[in-house]
Design a protein around this nucleic acid. Structure first.
Lengths: 219, 219
DNA sequence: ACGATATGAATGAATG
DNA sequence: CATTCATTCATATCGT
């Protein structure tokens, strides 16, 4: 059996984002004469919804919103598409759980020897990660404050604190200038952590992959 | 095009592969993508890695390794090529899922004519609010016969007979209800209320479930 | 080269 | 909160 627990080799930073189509919420009838794939029974968050959710998660430290907050959030998000309270609930649960899980895979080995970098990922600093997203350029009509946060008035404590910012960067630093000869398995990576982040928030870049595989005409 | 609903196929016995030691990480080469395109390459397991993984899966009964096991496994597999914890995690998840999926079809489909390519549901009926209430039918952990040894420690939580859930119907009902330009929570946005399953861990049941029908119907 | 398939990756949903 | 299942997307690979 596996027994020798070698030092946690550096892992490679992977970044992968999938194309997420916007569910046309035009009310069923559509020109999609063909099959209407996806849009099964499960909620498909829109980009805006994800953006807001992540904003709440990272910028506001919302981890486990309460019932009222869920109501507010879902109500607010409903502007951007169909959504229910349970979706919000599950979203936060999953997001938090996955964040921890990812970390657990690479961290956690209680080894005394740690030749790795610095052990940054070992920090549990409750720093609020105000990600440097200064100009989001939200396509929202900039009416009142349809920005992102504040689904209402967060009265009181709603858990600040554990805003682990394991995922602060979204640029892959795998460039690693060198990489000339041989095949270094990898200099230093945090592996799997710091991947997620807020991706689907930039209407500017069309960072989608090249191949355009048509699934359905989403308006 | 008939999408992939299911592919009841076995892995092609084509193990005559060559050692593909993960050419990625070598920098761009290949095509374009100057900017760090995270879509570089997904983990392609080497034959050795696959061998070990399958050995763990079949000979050791490993189905859902825990975090520590994942770390160990990935550490060991790293000898044969680049690998991360999440790769191991996903591998087991996928392997188990697909195996079950396959089995589900062969044991469930009564080999009847299955009018598949029917398509074209004209279901333009936005029947939102079709959330699944807790289904009483819990899968009994019946010890299926994997047919292989299993000396490892199976979490004794697999098995999952043939539940045969014929709930797979999809319609393009992404339409939103009100979605006014405000925060109307009022109207018909009932959803996910009265989920007793979460009574213990889900502290939210705020809305009213006046709609008697639906949840507890049938006597 | 293209299309089908196999499979890695991601995530919504659900359970304990 | 951890774990697991189902479903789907994306892509590598193989067959023709």
């Amino acid at each position: 059996l596996v027994q020798s627990i070698m030092e946690p080799q550096q892992q490679q930073l992977h970044q992968q984002q999938q194309n997420q189509q916007q569910p046309n919420e035009d009310g069923g009838s559509s020109k999609s004469s063909f099959l209407c794939r996806q849009s099964s029974t499960r909620w498909t968050p829109t980009t805006d919804q994800i953006r807001i959710l992540k904003d709440l998660y990272y910028n506001n430290g919302v981890r486990s919103p309460s019932a009222e907050q869920i109501q507010r959030i879902s109500a607010r998000l409903r502007q951007y598409g169909k959504i229910e309270g349970k979706n919000v609930f599950y979203w936060f649960q999953n997001h938090k759980a996955r964040e921890r899980q990812k970390k657990r895979f690479i961290t956690d080995i209680p080894m005394q020897q740690r030749g790795v970098v610095n052990g940054s990922w070992r920090s549990e600093d409750p720093i609020y990660n105000k990600y440097p997203n200064i100009s989001p350029g939200v396509p929202s009509p900039s009416s009142s404050s349809p920005g992102v946060l504040a689904v209402g008035q967060m009265s009181g404590s709603y858990g600040y604190g554990s805003v682990t910012m394991e995922k602060s960067f979204r640029d892959c630093s795998i460039s690693a200038g060198g990489s000339g000869t041989g095949g270094s398995i990898g200099p230093h990576n945090f592996g799997w952590v710091g991947v997620d982040a807020y991706s689907s928030s930039y209407p500017y870049f069309d960072k989608r992959k090249s191949i355009d595989h048509e699934t359905l005409e989403d308006e």
